[in-house]
Amino acid sequence: MNIFRILGDVSHLLAMIILLVKIWRSKSCAGISGKSQVLFAIVFTSRYLDLFTNFFSIYNTVMKFVFLMCAYITVYLIYGKFRKTFDNENDSFRLEFLLIPVTGLSFLENQSFTPLEILWTFSIYLESVAILPQLFMISKTGEAETITTHYLFFLGLYHALYLANWIWRYQTENYYDQIAVVSGVVQTIFYCDFFYLYVTKVLKGKKLSLP
């Protein structure tokens, strides 16, 4: 495990904790896309089925379990405990536009045509687009709370660090996985516009609002 990989995992975990803390402290999930969070829960569920079939390391097992828990608790807070604060109106991205192409692609382009491998591929493709409902919601309302932008920043940082991890692994182990790398590049591109706004506005103490 290299430094980019571990920092990437830490960023990912931090993003999820920031989101949970934001919802818990404010007792509100205003500005958060429930659809994106449901997609992330589906991503982890379909990817981590190997928890039952393979053992890699204590770290791997614990992190997978923690990620799953965070995702499910977040979905519960949005659609359960704090559903009255959920902005259903602005969370209007059509999920079928993501789910249908992603499902089709995972059947067409995978490493082996086995259920676990197709589900893994599906989760990789889905993760690369899962944030779109959230970004769509922000562009629709034209603003985001600062803590929500911190969440998005760490989520984007995780993707960028994983790219560095793959470059490192390619250089040192001559290992690469085309499906993960292409999806990783795609999802990191989605964050570029946001990164720009984050650096030019949020880090200078301003609220993120779109013209």
């Binding site: 995992d9 890699f56 997978k64």
Partner: peptide
């Protein structure tokens, strides 16, 4: 094994 290798990632 490439499949095992990638699945070590999260």
């Amino acid at each position: 094994n490439i499949i095992l290798k990638k699945k070590d990632e999260l």
